[in-house]
């Protein structure tokens, strides 16, 4: 990996698809793009089959624009809607068996640190609420107990969207879904508190209403995982299909939920806090120069 895998061999430029050439010329490889410049550079993720107005797709779009080191990142996903877009990006993607993502990511991260001891390689899991907190619960928890150094992002649409609307541990109490018509009898699982208890060093909860904040959260989660231990982001990413949200109202819904149960929340250990304070101090000095 590294920038070498992106470069077009001399003489082949005119045979490469336009999207690829654009990516090399105008994409974010080897430079730090600002998420607020989206729509003005060639994004890493391409067209994909996620539904119209899907805010999980939006979150993934911002995720790829926010990666601090795309040329040395590996993304892991699994069955569920997210992988439909994750697999369409110019970043290596591994499809873990449903429920296995955090076990695969553990092995991968360890192998990369042995194989490339002098390089930074970021590993990020992005999977649904079903994949991480229901069927993958054991693997997710144990990767945190073992303090594995990678980032886990749960794109929580509060349902099994990809299989037509079964209830998940993250569905809100009382909700009736197409394949769970009796209504959910239990509370939504408190994933953020579980992550803190299980050993994550950086934890955040976010609703996708502010791209700058999403990007900052993703960047922090990835940088903290590089140096200190497991990190976790719980993102609300609505499923307009299963929750029957008119697509024009999807952002309004994200804003509404932010005021209710998805208020932005960020927690980190003292060690991580000091690290970011130091880093941000240095970045400010750079800007002044």
């Amino acid at each position: 990996m590294g920038l070498e895998y992106v470069r077009i061999s001399p003489g082949f430029e005119k045979y490469m698809p336009r999207d690829y050439v654009d990516l090399v010329k105008y994409g974010p490889f080897g430079k730090q793009v600002d998420v607020m410049q989206m729509g003005q550079f060639k994004e890493l993720v391409e067209e994909h089959p996620m539904c119209a107005g899907c805010y999980m797709a939006y979150f993934i779009r911002v995720f790829y624009a926010a990666l601090p080191n795309p040329e040395d990142t590996i993304v892991l996903g699994t069955a569920g809607c997210a992988r439909l877009a994750l697999s369409q990006a110019a970043v290596p993607f591994i499809y873990g068996n449903y429920g296995d993502t955090n076990a695969v990511a553990s092995g991968l991260k360890r192998a990369l640190s042995i194989r490339f001891p002098d390089k930074v390689k970021d590993v990020v899991v992005i999977a649904g609420d079903g994949g991480l907190i229901d069927i993958g619960f054991g693997m997710t928890m144990h990767s945190w107990f073992r303090r594995e150094k990678f980032t886990t992002i749960m794109v929580d649409n509060e349902v099994y969207g990809n299989t037509g609307g079964q209830e998940s541990g993250m569905s809100p109490k009382g909700i009736q879904l197409k394949m769970a018509p009796l209504g959910k009898k239990f509370d939504k699982i408190n994933a953020v508190e579980l992550a803190k208890t299980a050993g994550c060093v950086y934890v955040a909860r976010i609703s996708p209403t502010n791209p700058k904040r999403i990007a900052k959260t993703i960047r922090r989660a990835i940088l903290a995982a590089r140096h200190f231990g497991p990190t976790f982001i719980h993102a609300y990413t609505s499923c307009n299909i299963e929750y029957s949200i008119p697509t024009r109202e999807v952002l309004a819904d994200a804003r509404k939920r932010e005021k209710q149960d998805f208020k932005f929340y960020e927690w980190m250990t003292d060690e991580v806090k000091e690290f970011f304070e130091e880093l941000e101090r240095k970045e400010k000095q750079e800007v002044k120069k």
Binding site: M36, M38, G39, Q40, K42, E43, L44, V45, E46, E47, M50, G53, C54, Y55, A57, Y58, R61, Y64, P211, V250, L251
Partner: peptide, 18 residues
């Protein structure tokens, strides 16, 4: 203004021309 560009779910779909 570039606000709509920042909230479209699709990549490189709603763009901005300076």
């Amino acid at each position: 203004c570039k606000q709509c560009v920042l909230f479209c779910p699709e990549p490189n779909c709603l763009n901005f021309k300076s």
